[in-house]
Amino acid sequence: MNRRPSLPGAAELFRLTSAPAISEEIAPAEVSTSDVTPLQRRGSGRTKHTTKITVYVSDEELLALEHARLALRADHGLGVDRGRVVREAIAIVLDDLETHGDASLLVRRLREQ
């Protein structure tokens, strides 16, 4: 009886985790932010993310985010994590900024500070 645990090999530990290739039909140079309508932008959902940022929030903001996540689960049957809520919120704010510009909620709130 072998008592050694079965561990992943180097190939599994150091595999490439690159993003899928872009279709040849749409080259990156052909897509601009002005081509994205508010209904097209969505949070990235449950996918493998290759880029990470760190955002510091207050205890109250984190608690509010967790309450929102729990409300989405309890009241709406949506089992989402905090990251997904944040990505959707970012998509909404960016759409509002693109659509309303100077009158967007983001611009107005940042000017209040």
Results as ranks from 00 to 15, higher is better:
Met1Val: 11
Asn2Thr: 15
Asn2Lys: 13
Asn2Gln: 14
Asn2Gly: 09
Arg3Gln: 15
Arg3Glu: 09
Pro5Met: 06
Leu7Val: 14
Ala10Pro: 00
Ala11Thr: 11
Glu12Phe: 04
Glu12Tyr: 09
Leu13Arg: 07
Leu13His: 07
Phe14Trp: 08
Arg15His: 13
Leu16Glu: 08
Leu16Tyr: 05
Leu16Ile: 11
Thr17Arg: 09
Thr17Met: 04
Thr17Glu: 04
Ser18Gln: 12
Ala19Ile: 07
Pro20Asn: 03
Pro20Ser: 01
Pro20Cys: 01
Pro20Arg: 05
Ile22Thr: 07
Ser23Leu: 11
Ser23Cys: 06
Ser23Arg: 15
Ser23Thr: 11
Glu24His: 14
Ile26Pro: 11
Ile26Lys: 09
Ala27Cys: 10
Ala27Asn: 07
Pro28Asn: 11
Pro28Gly: 06
Pro28Met: 12
Ala29Thr: 10
Ala29Glu: 10
Ser32Cys: 06
Ser32Arg: 10
Asp35Gly: 13
Val36Leu: 10
Thr37Leu: 14
Leu39Tyr: 06
Leu39Glu: 09
Gln40Tyr: 10
Gln40Ile: 12
Arg41Asn: 08
Arg42Ile: 06
Ser44Arg: 14
Ser44His: 15
Gly45Tyr: 03
Gly45Ile: 00
Arg46Met: 08
Thr47Cys: 10
Lys48Trp: 01
His49Ser: 06
Thr50Asp: 05
Thr50Phe: 01
Lys52Asp: 03
Lys52His: 12
Ile53Glu: 06
Ile53Leu: 07
Val55Gly: 00
Val55Ser: 03
Val55His: 00
Tyr56Lys: 15
Val57Cys: 12
Val57Gln: 00
Ser58Thr: 14
Ser58Arg: 02
Asp59Trp: 02
Glu60Pro: 10
Glu61Asp: 14
Leu63Asn: 10
Ala64Val: 13
Ala64Pro: 08
Leu65Pro: 03
Leu65Asn: 00
Leu65His: 02
Leu65Asp: 03
Leu65Trp: 03
Leu65Met: 08
Glu66Met: 13
His67Arg: 13
His67Asn: 11
Ala68Leu: 15
Ala68Phe: 03
Arg69Ser: 03
Arg69Pro: 01
Arg69Cys: 01
Leu70Glu: 01
Leu70Arg: 15
Leu70Gly: 00
Ala71Asn: 06
Leu72Gln: 02
Arg73Gly: 02
Ala74Lys: 15
Ala74Asp: 05
Ala74Glu: 07
Asp75Gly: 00
His76Lys: 07
His76Met: 05
His76Val: 03
Gly77Tyr: 04
Gly77Met: 05
Gly79Thr: 08
Val80Ile: 12
Val80Ala: 12
Asp81Ser: 08
Arg82Val: 06
Gly83Thr: 15
Gly83Arg: 13
Arg84Pro: 00
Arg84Lys: 13
Val85Cys: 02
Val85Lys: 02
Val86Met: 14
Glu88Asn: 12
Ile90Thr: 15
Ile90Asp: 00
Ile90Cys: 04
Ala91Asp: 02
Ile92Asn: 03
Ile92Phe: 02
Val93Gly: 01
Val93Glu: 15
Leu94Trp: 02
Asp95Phe: 00
Asp95Ile: 01
Asp96Trp: 14
Leu97Pro: 00
Leu97Gln: 07
His100Cys: 08
Gly101Leu: 01
Val107Tyr: 01
Val107Asp: 00
Val107Ser: 01
Arg108Pro: 03
Arg108Asn: 01
Arg109Gly: 04
Leu110Met: 09
Leu110Val: 06
Gln113Ser: 08
Gln113Thr: 09
